[in-house]
């Protein structure tokens, strides 16, 4: 157990990092706005300021950058929270938020929506519902597995996930290659490029609603990592906790995927990073994961829109950064245990 004072300082550091990333992201983009103008435009919403900026400045800031930055912060924090919670309840550090098929289901829902060209909003709704549906199917199947609950869940998750994956592949095969196929392909790569204000209103509530119960139950997650038997001796119903956490994480994942597509590695890597900084105790590790996840996705998204004049899908970048980092963690952690 680390010194509480130490942890407090580190947590404040993480919060400060998020604040810097959040406000710093407003300054970055292919369309240059100087910080002073930016501040004036922001303040003009709450007070009278003579307008000396162009309509374009305002459009970029409010219609393009603002929704994107908010969404990036919320999705990054949400995915890291879901990942950390899953790693706890499955007692497995290799688990990420898509383990129960939520991402695959949502990807299928989106591909289906794009295939039938149902429109911008309906694609998100379809993705969200299929993401939830995939996990409901997994939970139903796993209830019949008597011998090992977590194993049953993981196996059912892999199964259901790969069925939805096959569905996506089939839709890609029969989709029109001039517009539908690239639309599906780009969608699956994950991107915050086209986030609109309406997406923020659509996805933020479920993500925040999903984060809250996990945050409130985070002390019980500590106990659950020791196993169901131990949890019972401490008067905790592992099954209930697990179901609530799965419900929250599913809301987060389905909502995140429904607006941004597949963004991998955040939910897997960030909790480990958080553990390195504040230790294993879920009471601080979970909030630390959320703060770090938000900062991480904001930084990566800045690269996505700054590296070239065309967007680089963020899912590609998170993998490029996440995978080597994870490898590094495995190698150094392995060394420490020896």
């Amino acid at each position: 157990m680390r010194d509480p004072k130490h942890i407090k300082i580190r947590m404040s550091g993480l919060a400060a990092l998020l604040a810097v990333c959040f406000f710093g992201s407003f300054l970055l983009g292919k369309y240059a706005i100087d910080p002073w103008t930016l501040l004036k435009i922001l303040l003009s919403r709450v007070m009278e300021i003579p307008v000396d900026w162009t309509v374009q400045d305002e459009t970029v800031l409010f219609n393009v950058r603002l929704p994107r930055v908010i969404m990036g912060a919320v999705i990054g924090g949400g995915l890291a929270c879901a990942g950390a919670a899953y790693q706890g309840i499955f007692q497995n550090p290799m688990v990420s938020p898509d383990i129960l098929g939520a991402s695959n289901g949502a990807a299928f829902g989106a591909a289906l929506g794009l295939f039938f060209t149902v429109g911008y909003k309906a694609v998100s709704v379809s993705a969200f519902l299929f993401g939830i549906m995939a996990v409901v199917i997994v939970l139903t199947i796993s209830r019949r597995v008597k011998f090992n609950v977590t194993l049953g869940l993981i196996l059912a998750g892999i199964m259901v996930g790969s069925i939805f994956n096959a569905g996506v592949s089939y839709l890609k095969l029969v989709a029109d290659p001039t517009d539908t196929l690239p639309a599906i392909t780009y969608w699956l790569m994950g991107s915050l490029a086209s986030i609109r204000t309406q997406d923020v209103f659509f996805a933020c509530p479920p993500i925040i609603i999903g984060i809250l119960p996990i945050l409130l139950l985070r002390w019980r997650l500590n106990v659950l990592t020791m196993g169901d038997e131990e949890a019972r001796t401490m008067g905790i119903n592992a099954r209930v906790v697990r179901t609530v956490v799965i419900g929250g994480a599913t809301l987060i994942t389905a909502a995140a995927v429904s607006v941004s597509g597949l963004i991998g590695w955040v939910g897997l890597v960030i909790p480990h990073f958080a553990r390195m900084i504040v230790g294993d105790d879920y009471r601080v590790m979970l909030p630390a994961s959320i703060l770090l996840g938000s900062s991480f996705l904001l930084v990566v998204d800045n690269f996505a829109r700054m590296l070239a004049t065309r967007e680089i899908p963020i899912g590609i970048l998170t993998a490029f950064i996440g995978a080597p980092f994870f490898l590094y963690l495995i190698l150094t952690e392995g060394g420490r245990q020896r």
Binding site: V64, A193, S194, R310, P313
Partner: peptide, 19 residues
């Protein structure tokens, strides 16, 4: 190069386009 617009999650860089 602005990238392509396909309704959603495409490679269109809106800021480069506005710029």
């Amino acid at each position: 190069q602005f990238g392509q617009f396909y309704g959603k999650n495409a490679s269109l860089n809106m800021e480069a386009l506005i710029a």
